[in-house]
Design a protein around this nucleic acid. Structure first.
Lengths: 191, 191
DNA sequence: GAAGATTGATGTCTCAATCTTC
DNA sequence: GAAGATTGAGACATCAATCTTC
């Protein structure tokens, strides 16, 4: 494996080379931040204007749509959209008020609750997806050549693995380990 | 297939082909979203724990540090960190309460207000930058080879240009192109 | 009147505490 | 007692309306 698991020290000492404020590699870093900000803002605006739905709601619903049986445990949802548990509770509250999902206590585990997509929710997602996919195509995949997209995917996979494997907070990285090997030696193209 | 290296094309494509929900190009898109979420969450946690400062505050202060005279108009600050004007007002309120910046009415234009970095603010940034730069190195630039970083920079520049050039909201895209030299040519503030 | 900045009202997310079920 | 979910309190961002200055 390459070097990136040597990060167990609480002290920021063992760095290959010290990053300073003038390092040119900070330019891609900033572009990354700005791109995410303007892009998500735009996608959220488009979704609200054309579909009366926030991007956060769309993303949550998408996870549920794709889950087996179109139902998903609250905690799983929290992990997949990177939101706190309480945040998910309230988000699902709103979706439930809109009649897009309904809650159902988990059959196997009485503690758990599942968010289940309603028919109305499915209908809504079908329409919203048009707007959202159009935006992604217009602003992201449509302007980037495939080889670059592959580089992005590989890079971000590595970033995510790095952050999660380093997790100080065990709860925050409760994510299946099958992402582990994917950093280095994955052929996995189209998923 | 789809993309050949039209690397110089600033054109925000009309709509070549319809993107559907199973398109493999959505995988890099999702990795992008997840990577940003987990990474920013971690950087925010680190900054709060070690420096008692949020990532949003850090980013705002950084813009001020790098501005000429270490002072920046409120509206400029809003643009550069992609935040609403009222959001900036309140963010600067908090920074002012902490004594990290002070407000100063703009000399040239009586309507404008500037956020000016205080000595204490500069000191604080010097310390906070250690934590932040360490995180960026550990989770981002340190795990990505330079050629990939270049691809990311180029890609995201294109994305940002695309979103802004398409701007329905002219106010939201009034941003200088000088992101370029800021990291490179500034008189080493926060390091 | 338009631009820059602020304020009030409101919505959403987070932590800590709580309740329920295992 | 631990895990899953929820609730209350507080922090932060946004829109729309307002005030000031051009």
């Amino acid at each position: 494996m390459l070097a990136m698991k040597d990060t167990q020290r609480p002290v920021p000492s063992a760095s290959p080379r010290r990053l300073n404020a003038r390092d040119p590699r900070l330019v891609p870093w900033r572009m990354f931040q700005v791109a995410h900000a303007v892009l998500n803002r735009r996608l959220d605006e488009d979704l609200r204007r054309e579909q009366g739905m926030s991007l956060a709601e769309y993303v949550a619903l998408l996870q549920i749509v794709e889950a087996p049986g179109r139902r998903l445990r609250m905690s799983r949802l929290a992990e997949s959209i990177v939101l706190s548990r309480s945040g998910v509770t309230r988000l699902v509250d709103r979706l439930e008020e809109d009649g897009l999902v309904s809650r159902s206590t988990c059959t196997a585990d009485g503690r758990g609750a599942e968010a289940v997509l309603t028919e109305r929710g499915l209908e809504r997602m079908r329409r919203a997806a048009r707007t959202h996919l159009h935006g992604i195509e217009q602003y992201f995949v449509g302007v980037l050549p495939d080889p670059d997209l592959e580089t992005l995917e590989r890079s971000f996979r590595r970033v995510v693995d790095g952050v999660r494997s380093e997790g100080r907070d065990p709860a925050a990285c409760a994510v299946p380990d099958d992402l582990e090997g994917a950093t280095e030696a994955e052929p996995s193209p189209a998923d």
